Simulated scan of single mutants.
Amino acid sequence: MLAEFDLIRRYFTTAAAAPSSANPVALGIGDDASVLAPTAGQELAISVDTSVADVHFPADAPAHAVGHRALAVAVSDLAAMGARSRWCWMALTLDERRFADDSAADAWLSDYAKGFLAGCSAYPAALVGGDVTSGSLAISVTVAGEVPAGQALTRSGAAVGDVIAVTGSLGGGAGGLALWQRGERDLTHPLLRRYLLPEPRLEGGMALRGLASSVMDISDGLIADLGHIRRASRVDAALDADALPLADGLEEALGTEAARRAALSGGDDYELLVTLPPSQLARAQALLGNMGMALTAVGRCVPPGEGDEASCAGITGWQHFTSAPGGQS
């Protein structure tokens, strides 16, 4: 395998990783630190996300999907803040034992870089630095975006009476993981794509600025992530489980009951969980609809202690150190 700095130059110092007029960088890859040029009047939203082999993704997943997914799940946090994606840093830990020879390493790294850098172009997020080291396969991605001053979306603004809504559909990530564990490897399958090639809802998050009272991305499951909003906003929630928008093919793959459970707690959906005043629901639905993105009401915020837990009895989301490994974030 190439030495550290040769590896960085070959696979990650490319035109696809370079800054553009939309993402200006005063100093990027190649120095001890990045020097950025934030836009006047904007605040920075910064998040870091770590993906570990056989915890967050299968170690034998296609390398381009590993690269895409590592960036996409980090960028999803910017979407939840209503931020525009600008820059990213990537720290890659490689397990040298998995590569029998240099050609195997080159094939994996080329494919991984293709997936990661395609995401850099799509979102967009200029790759401005990072690190490469040896150890068990893991990727840490830090992302930074911009949001107009005072307009960042948070978890703490929900109020009693607000509608609880979700973008897109739910359960696809968990459904894709289940299919992978059964041996399905066709990445054209919509559920596998939802799991291994998620797409952050950046445009949706920006459109919700000024309309939503609170937002989170759904990474650990609807119930778990709604719990964060409940605690931060000091409200409770009444959900309508029958209103949950299920991912296409989920019931056929898992059965009705398991599909409902996947939508409530499966995680890895990277949709947006939104609360907003009832008066703003139609406007938000229209704005997102123009982007081809559904926004479905699935419940409402109620006073603390008045939530209906019956539809969620015994259902929790993913939590590190308490959940069994299996590919959840």
Score class of each variant (00 low, 15 high):
310 A>Q: 10
243 A>M: 02
246 L>W: 01
271 E>K: 04
143 V>R: 04
82 G>L: 09
111 D>I: 00
66 V>P: 05
246 L>S: 05
9 R>P: 01
61 A>V: 01
166 V>C: 02
290 N>D: 15
75 V>Y: 14
98 R>G: 08
174 A>I: 00
27 L>Q: 13
239 L>V: 09
137 L>C: 05
93 T>K: 13
233 S>M: 12
311 S>P: 13
91 A>D: 14
249 G>A: 06
131 D>E: 07
183 G>D: 04
11 Y>E: 00
233 S>G: 14
58 P>T: 01
146 E>T: 09
305 G>M: 10
161 G>R: 06
299 G>K: 13
312 C>D: 09
156 S>K: 09
64 H>V: 01
155 R>S: 15
254 L>G: 09
242 D>G: 11
216 M>Q: 12
284 A>D: 08
313 A>C: 08
14 T>C: 01
141 V>T: 14
299 G>P: 08
145 G>W: 04
175 G>V: 07
150 G>R: 04
296 T>C: 04
53 A>D: 10
260 R>H: 10
279 S>L: 04
168 G>Y: 02
254 L>S: 13
188 T>V: 07
278 P>M: 04
30 G>C: 05
203 E>I: 03
208 L>Y: 14
84 R>I: 03
20 S>M: 06
210 G>I: 07
195 Y>R: 15
298 V>K: 08
1 M>P: 15
92 L>F: 13
158 A>K: 07
126 A>G: 09
268 D>E: 15
276 L>W: 01
256 T>K: 13
59 A>S: 14
150 G>K: 05
125 A>H: 09
106 D>G: 11
191 L>Y: 07
189 H>C: 03
272 L>Y: 06
138 A>E: 04
243 A>L: 02
235 V>C: 08
178 A>S: 12
204 G>V: 00
319 Q>H: 14
246 L>R: 11
188 T>G: 06
269 D>S: 05
273 L>Y: 02
104 A>C: 06
145 G>F: 08
260 R>G: 08
30 G>M: 03
119 G>R: 15
120 C>Q: 06
153 L>K: 05
206 M>Y: 05
60 D>W: 00
38 P>F: 03
208 L>G: 05
140 S>E: 11
245 P>F: 02
317 G>E: 00
224 A>V: 02
71 L>S: 07
86 R>S: 11
273 L>Q: 11
30 G>H: 05
276 L>E: 00
243 A>R: 08
168 G>W: 00
140 S>P: 10
206 M>D: 04
7 L>T: 09
90 M>K: 07
73 V>F: 11
67 G>K: 08
239 L>D: 10
2 L>E: 12
197 L>P: 09
124 P>W: 04
46 I>H: 12
143 V>I: 01
321 F>Q: 13
144 A>E: 10
64 H>T: 03
63 A>Q: 02
158 A>S: 14
49 D>V: 03
255 G>F: 01
45 A>I: 09
129 G>T: 02
315 I>P: 00
6 D>Y: 14
58 P>K: 00
203 E>A: 15
277 P>W: 07
129 G>M: 06
7 L>S: 10
76 S>T: 12
253 A>L: 12
168 G>S: 14
311 S>L: 00
156 S>I: 00
128 V>N: 12
144 A>P: 06
